[in-house]
């Protein structure tokens, strides 16, 4: 049986550590130290992720497979009509996102790319952020790359956005005045309120969090963390998330994709 959603009890514990964190500088994660979040999870959670018949994220992947074949929009086309069999055409796509979109002149993540495809080619309304259909399609596409290493796009046009992502990652924020790096670069092997801190690796998204009892995106996870340090989360469609995702993807290069992951 899995736990019900509960109030973030870790916030109280966060209060006691800023003094400790203040003395250490932000050091980016060394390649050899990179560890997926699943390495910090309990054996039970690891087993749930490893077994497709027990992994609840597979429910969304199955939904996504149906959406892939469903004609939509004014063009009346399904994803499948252009892209064919996802097992071939989508293999290796998710590990390089976020990628640059020439039309927008800035990077988009996988969900953003799906919505662009809907608007430009299917002539359909974009799917809602964090809606079940968007999560299902994103999970289905990313699932095709499960096991492949994260391979961030090498496009030079991405460099300034990735640099901005790193700046945001190292930017202190919120009433607790903590940056992402304060915990996830400097103290990832420690525990906070009984839970592992982890390295904030993005290689399993969208993933099923037992606390959420649902699939959720990397952006939802980032909003959780921002609320945790008592900062106001960025707006839902803020470009800052994409910049952060870009930096996280570069920081995770080489880790295998796990979509759909399972986390506590």
């Amino acid at each position: 049986m899995r736990p019900r959603p509960r109030a973030p009890a870790v916030i109280a514990a966060l209060l006691s550590i800023p003094a400790l964190l203040a003395v250490s500088g932000a050091v980016a994660l060394e390649q050899g130290d990179r560890r997926s979040g699943i390495a910090f999870a309990s054996p039970q959670t690891q087993a749930m992720q490893a077994d497709d018949t027990a992994n609840p994220g597979m429910l969304w992947v199955m939904d996504g497979a149906q959406l892939w074949r469903r004609p939509d929009g004014a063009a009346g086309k399904a994803c499948q009509e252009c892209h064919g069999d996802a097992a071939q055409s989508m293999k290796g796509v998710a590990p390089r996102y976020p990628d640059f979109d020439a039309g927008l002149g800035r990077p988009v993540d996988l969900s953003g790319r799906i919505n662009l495809c809907r608007v430009r080619h299917q002539r359909a309304a974009p799917l809602a952020h964090e809606g079940s259909e968007m999560l299902a399609l994103t999970a289905f596409v990313a699932f095709q790359s499960r096991g492949l290493p994260m391979a961030p796009a090498a496009d030079a046009r991405l460099a300034p956005f990735r640099a901005e992502g790193r700046r945001l990652f190292e930017q202190r924020m919120g009433q607790l005045d903590l940056s992402c790096a304060n915990c996830h670069d400097d103290h990832w092997s420690a525990r906070l309120g009984g839970s592992p801190v982890t390295q904030a690796q993005p290689n399993a998204y969208p993933l099923y969090r037992l606390e959420w009892q649902a699939l959720g995106s990397l952006q939802r996870r980032m909003r959780n963390c921002m609320a945790g340090v008592r900062a106001e989360p960025f707006a839902y469609d803020a470009a800052d998330y994409i910049d952060l995702e870009l930096y996280l993807a570069a920081r995770a290069a080489g880790l295998p994709m796990e979509t759909p992951g399972v986390r506590p």
């Binding site: 027990a54 609840p56 037992l210 009892q213």
Partner: peptide, 9 residues
């Protein structure tokens, strides 16, 4: 009290 997406084995 049973979680969402109940799993029985």
């Amino acid at each position: 009290a049973v979680s969402a997406n109940p799993f029985l084995s």
